[in-house]
Simulated scan of single mutants.
Amino acid sequence: MAQVKNNYQFEDMLQKHNLKKTAPRLRVLSMMYSKNTATSQPDLESVMNDIDRVTLYRILNTFEEKGIIHKVFDLNGTANYAVCHSDCKENHHHDEHLHFNCTACKNVYCINELNMPRLTLPAGFEPQAFTLYASGLCPKCSKKGAARVN
């Protein structure tokens, strides 16, 4: 479910991450927090046509560096962005959760409710990131498919 925040909370978030409170940054935060799926830059561009492509790219890049959002790839290899947990920090993400790609609607979901297995690598390997993907049908698409069968 999408997290509900108001503009004051977004302003506090930007201040906490030492970022200027600009209207485009606040709009991007508001849009991303209103969704329960990850979203791509092209999708954001289509609904935020008053923010140019370069500015939007810079905002997303800055938010990712600051630990506000994290990048996840969909089944086509397109970068999508999702809101981070509060324990993410600048240049150090804790987004070790399942990323679910729906094969019907193409949405990407962050599934935080699962307990992730502990990752044990052979000697000499030092993991810096961990990503786990699954694909199939999301609840909405599963329900649509079941309705068509009945």
Rank of each mutant, 00 (worst) to 15 (best):
P117F: 09
T62C: 04
N112F: 11
H70S: 08
A23H: 11
Y33P: 01
M48S: 07
Y8D: 14
G136V: 04
T103N: 06
A146G: 10
N76W: 04
T55A: 13
V47G: 05
R148P: 02
R118P: 03
V47F: 08
K16F: 12
R118Y: 13
G77H: 02
F125T: 14
L56G: 00
G67T: 09
F130Y: 12
A38G: 00
N76V: 03
K16S: 14
F10P: 00
Q9T: 09
K144T: 15
L132F: 10
A134V: 04
F125I: 15
E65F: 03
H92L: 14
K89R: 13
R25C: 06
E90R: 06
K5A: 10
L98E: 11
S34E: 06
Q128S: 15
P24C: 10
A104L: 06
T103W: 02
L60G: 06
N18Y: 08
L44V: 08
L137R: 03
H93P: 02
F10K: 00
M48K: 05
R58I: 13
H93F: 04
Q128I: 15
I68W: 00
N18S: 15
A38R: 01
V47W: 03
A82C: 09
V28I: 09
Y109C: 07
T103I: 15
F73E: 14
F130E: 11
T78F: 06
R58V: 12
D87F: 04
L137F: 13
L56Q: 05
F130R: 09
A79T: 06
D50H: 04
T78I: 14
A2E: 04
H85M: 03
R27Y: 12
F63V: 06
L14T: 07
I111P: 01
R58P: 00
V83A: 01
K144C: 12
S34I: 02
L75C: 07
F100W: 00
M48E: 09
S142L: 12
F130H: 11
E45M: 11
K66E: 14
N49Q: 13
R58S: 15
A23L: 14
S46R: 03
P24W: 08
C102M: 02
C141H: 00
K71I: 12
L132R: 09
G67R: 05
A146M: 09
A79W: 00
N150S: 13
N80W: 05
G136C: 03
D95E: 07
S142Y: 06
N18P: 02
M48P: 03
I51F: 01
A82T: 12
D50E: 13
D74F: 00
L44K: 03
H85T: 15
F100P: 01
Y8G: 11
H85S: 15
D12G: 04
T39N: 05
C138W: 02
